[in-house]
Amino acid sequence: MPSIETNGLTKRFGDVVAVEDLDLTIEEGEIFGFLGPNGAGKSTTINMLLDFIRPTEGSAEVFGMDAQRQPEAIRERIGVLPEGYGFDDYLTGREYLEWTIESRGADDDPDELLDLVGILDDADRKAKGYSKGMQQRLAFGMALVDDPDLLILDEPSTGLDPNGIQQMRSLVRDRAENGTTVFFSSHILSEVEAVCDRVGVMNEGRLTALDTIENLRENAGGRSSIELACASPPSVDGLGDIDGVATVDVDGARLTAQCTDPAAKVDVVRHVDDRADVVDILAENTSLEELFNQYTGGGRDGPGTADGSGADFGSDSGSGSGSGSGSDSQEASA
């Protein structure tokens, strides 16, 4: 049975479509990264899984139970780090954690958990007065209580310092090794790459990609580039005719070719080497940031909207709307 399954999940707020026709299946034991720019519909989706908000259409199931009909049974088995939480009672960090343990009927040791998330020294201060990062640590500690079967973490690294982020990642990995399914959202790619088995990319309420990072990279294709340093300015004649080469730029003795097919790089090297003296080679695959931009059309700050469904991206990404890679050199041929 999948840990999370949504079918045609849709949420509209008036005229605004927050999530549209989302079909998502997360298998047991997976670490799933839910990626997307701000306002892409990630939190809305998570809030529907938790029954904080109700879908307009479609359904959401957690462990085969309907999110709206059996929220209590679902909550028995999940640990949540929600978005937009607040510590507003006159309770200390330890008391919040103790309350969570009591409410779950768990037998965790509060001090052990506080130590795990790194706030043991501040446990007896009011949680209200914690910094954002410390509150985030406490909330994460509360999510870990009773070793849940599924962890739902909404932007878990928000406000954390680099140490905190690493600590959180290694905790997530540890829990996943023990069979916990982890579903977390993020707008930071490196974070997702570091821990996730699989990622889903949301943009403007739609799932634009769903795969492993490697496959996404492969499908996004065209962003492989090769840079050749030559003894003298090389000629570019015929380079653009090679299959899989999208653009060729020359800047002095330096030649850069962008390839839609990574295999074309070798042909570029051979071609140039026949005509000039190559002294250095630098090959690069799509960077995560470029990948992110490709699947989200540059996010909120992009020039346009990413094109519909994920399937389109493999073929025409070279001419995609907002590649946003910051390439500033002139194109010699196309």
């Binding site: 929600p82 507003d88 919040y96």
Partner: peptide, 19 residues
């Protein structure tokens, strides 16, 4: 309403509690 605005309700409803 206070719990709703401050987000405390998120914790209440993340535990095995119903509305």
């Amino acid at each position: 309403a206070g719990e709703r605005e401050s987000g405390g309700i998120k914790f209440l409803l993340s535990l095995p509690n119903t509305r």
